[in-house]
Design a protein around this nucleic acid. Structure first.
Lengths: 200, 200
DNA sequence: GCATGACGCGAGCAATCGCTCGCATTCAAG
DNA sequence: CTTGAATGCGAGCGATTGCTCGCGTCATGC
C-alpha cells in the first residue's frame, strides 16, 4: 500500500475500492477487472485509487485474501469445535460436520468462487489456499497423533494431507460443477471415504 | 482454423507453430505467449501464423488439447488393461496400477503441467479435463456395475465420481507441490483410501 | 479563520499486443 | 516456361489499459 488513509473519508474510499473489486469480479468476471472499471464502480477516480494501492494486483490480492480468510475462519472454527477433547467418539459425525462447514462457506458466494477458481490463474489463489490447507492439515494431524486409536494409517501428517486434498476438491467440484446429486449424498460418500480410509 | 495447409511446407509450418506454442509455455510461461513471440520461436512471421490460426487462443487450445489427449490416452489404456474381465480379483493392485499410470503421465512434462494448471485460467483446461474425467468415470462406473461384489457403495456412478475427483487431485497435487514423501507412499495411501471406501 | 497538507480528480501518456494488409516469393498444373 | 494460386513476410495499425501528473478541494491544527 502506497499511503495510509488517515481521514475517515479516505478509509471509506479504500473499502469502496476493495468492494468494487469484489463486485466487478463477481458480476462481470476477471476480464472486466480493469483499473478504470474498478474506479468507476467504486465512484472514485483512477488517480485516487493509486493513492492507496501500488498497482492493480494489490486490489485483486486484497479481495482474494478476504475471501479465503473468511472460508478459513469458518472451517477452522468448525474443526476446533469438533476436534476438541469432548471425546464423544463419533469421529465420522465430526467429518460430516466439518465438510458441511466447508460446503456452506463455499456456497455463500458461488459466483465469486467460480471467478476466483476458474477465471484467474490458479497461482493467484495458491498462497491463500495453501494457508487454509496448512491450518486444517495441522489441526487434523495433531488430532490424529493425539488419538491414534481412530486411525490405522501409519503417518498422521500424510493421512491429514490426503484427507485435506480429497475433501477440499470434492467439495469444490461439487459446488462448481453441480454434478446432479444432492448435498447429503455427497456428505454420505465423504463420511464413507474418510471412515473407510482411517479403518483400512 | 482459417485455411487448410495444402503443401508440405505449410503443414510443417503449422506443426512448428504449435510446437513453438508449447515451448514458449513450457520455457517462458503463459505471459510470454504472445503471437509475436510464438512467431519468432516458430521462425515464422505473424502474418503467416494468421493464415492457419484464426486467433491466438486457437494455438493455445491446440497445445492444451494435445497435452490432455496424451494423458487421457495413457490413463484409459491402463484402465482398460486392468479392468478387463481377466478377473484376477486384485482390484487394489488395479487401483495402484492406474494411479501409477496417471502419475507417470503427469510427470513426463511437469513444467508444461505447471503452466497449464497454475498460470492459465482453469477454465481453459476445463473442457479437456472434463473429457478425461468423464472417460475414466464411465469406465469405472460400468465396471462397478458389472461387478457389484467389489463395492458396497450404493450408487456406482456416484462412487466413480468421488474416486476420480479424489485420485486426480491427489496425483496432481503430489506432482505439482512435491509434498516431501515418495511416490510409493502416495500409492499406498491411495490404495488404502480406495480400498477402505469400497469396503465401507 | 487561515494555512498546510491530506485528499481527490480525470485527461491522457506510454507501452503492449492482437491482428491486418500490401507485396514478394515459391510451387505446381498445363 | 508460363501463369495463377498458394505461401510467406513484417511493418505497423488500432484498441486496450495500467498508471501518472498537475491542479483543484477539503479537513484539521493552531
Amino acid at each position: 500500500m502506497r499511503k495510509q488513509p488517515r481521514q475517515a473519508r479516505s478509509k471509506a474510499m479504500v473499502e469502496r475500492i476493495i468492494e468494487a473489486g469484489r463486485r466487478v469480479l463477481t458480476e462481470e468476471g476477471y476480464d472486466a477487472l480493469t483499473t478504470n472499471r474498478v474506479a468507476v464502480v467504486a465512484e472514485v477516480s483512477p488517480g485516487s485509487l493509486y493513492q492507496y494501492f501500488p498497482d492493480k494486483t494489490s486490489i485483486l490480492d486484497e479481495v482474494i485474501e478476504r475471501y479465503w480468510d473468511e472460508v478459513s475462519e469458518r472451517v477452522t472454527a468448525s474443526l476446533a469445535d469438533r476436534i476438541a477433547p469432548t471425546d464423544d467418539g463419533d469421529d465420522l459425525a465430526a467429518a460430516r460436520a466439518i465438510t458441511d462447514a466447508l460446503l456452506a462457506a463455499l456456497e455463500t458466494d458461488p459466483n465469486l468462487l467460480r471467478v476466483l477458481s476458474e477465471e484467474l490463474p490458479a497461482a493467484r489463489n495458491r498462497r491463500r489456499r495453501a494457508t487454509l490447507e496448512r491450518r486444517v492439515r495441522d489441526l487434523l494431524s495433531t488430532y490424529l497423533t493425539l488419538r491414534p486409536e481412530i486411525s490405522s494409517r501409519p503417518d498422521p501428517s500424510l493421512t491429514a494431507w490426503v484427507m485435506v486434498i480429497a475433501l477440499e476438491n470434492l467439495a469444490l467440484r461439487w459446488v462448481l460443477d453441480a454434478p446432479g446429486f444432492d448435498r447429503d449424498r455427497l456428505l454420505d460418500e465423504i463420511v464413507a471415504l474418510v471412515g473407510g480410509y482411517l479403518a483400512s
